[in-house]
């Protein structure tokens, strides 16, 4: 069976003081190959934990993750990761960063040079390939991170707030880029975000998570990602359903946040 399947995933962190945090409880979901899913939820609801488990950095307390029919047990090149920031290697040029995966796999330069150059073209960094990473702006750095991930040709791409540190304008351009790359490469993508608009724009499917314990609250299927490929995202946002969905989800998250606040006040 192709695609990613998560079954009854639970994660409990035992705290040094003897207590424990139920970061995830009975999370199940299926992701078909090539699907783009965005994940939303109030802070602390377990989004990063979920992603880290799928990436293989954490082992769940219970539950199974299968990718293309085999169990996920640790990090692997089949699951690429794009972080919010600071995950590039400053001691390498842009090109060396992007070609890191193929080089570590021991492939010869003739093998990957074309792909890497093509990817640098796609993310618009052809003229910067010999530059040092720290000479680039934040948006350029995230494009390098995207290209680096794609150069390794993973089956699934996991992104934890990849655009979170960017300014509004750069962010909008990057959203377009993500959609374009998704359509061109046909990768399965999970993207965590804090922005409801971004989640709507970049989610073929949208998962809203609820905290304490972290679980799936609601799931949507949305048309906007398809509409947005190679189109003006601002036009997509004018779609009547877009505004309506945005209000609905915002309200949902607001309610959750208020509930959390209320609960902590009770505890205090």
């Amino acid at each position: 069976m192709n695609g990613l399947s998560i079954e009854n995933l639970s994660m409990r962190f035992d705290l040094p003081n003897g207590g424990s945090v139920q970061a995830l409880k009975d999370v199940s979901l299926q992701l078909a190959e090539g699907e783009l899913m965005s994940v939303l939820g109030p802070s602390g609801c377990g989004k990063t934990t979920l992603l880290n488990i799928v990436a293989g950095f954490l082992a769940p307390t219970s539950g199974d993750i299968m990718l293309n029919g085999h169990a996920v047990t640790g990090p692997d090149a089949e699951r690429g990761m794009v972080f919010q920031q600071g995950a590039l290697f400053e001691w390498m040029s842009v090109r060396d960063n992007v070609s890191f995966g193929p080089r570590m796999a021991g492939r010869r330069e003739g093998d990957w040079a074309e792909t890497v150059d093509h990817l640098l073209d796609v993310v618009g960094l052809r003229d910067f390939k010999e530059k040092a990473v720290y000479e680039l702006s934040g948006g350029m750095q995230q494009r390098v991170a995207l290209a680096r991930c794609l150069a390794n040709d993973p089956d699934v791409i996991l992104m934890d707030e990849p655009l979170g540190a960017l300014d509004a304008l750069t962010r909008e351009k990057m959203q377009g880029l993500v959609l374009k790359l998704w359509k061109e490469t046909g990768k399965t993508i999970i993207l965590i975000t804090h922005s409801v608009e971004e989640a709507l724009l970049l989610g073929e499917r949208l998962l809203v998570m609820a905290p304490r314990p972290g679980r799936i609250h609601r799931e949507y299927r949305l048309p906007f990602a398809d509409l947005g490929v190679n189109a003006d995202l601002r036009e997509v946002k004018k779609h009547p359903e877009f505004g309506q969905k945005r209000e609905e989800i915002l309200g949902m998250i607001w309610d959750m946040e208020e509930e959390i606040m209320g609960r902590t006040e009770e505890n205090a």
């Binding site: 950095f57 699951r79 972080f83 600071g86 995950a87 290697f89 890191f100 680096r148 991930c149």
Partner: peptide
């Protein structure tokens, strides 16, 4: 930064490669 190590792992680097290409340069 743990994200650098994580990134290297998910790009398929081995422990030795992470040592050589991430940890050593990062500690310079």
């Amino acid at each position: 930064a743990i994200s650098k190590v994580h990134a290297a792992y998910s790009l398929g680097a081995s422990k030795w490669q992470i040592m050589r290409h991430v940890i050593v340069p990062n500690s310079l």
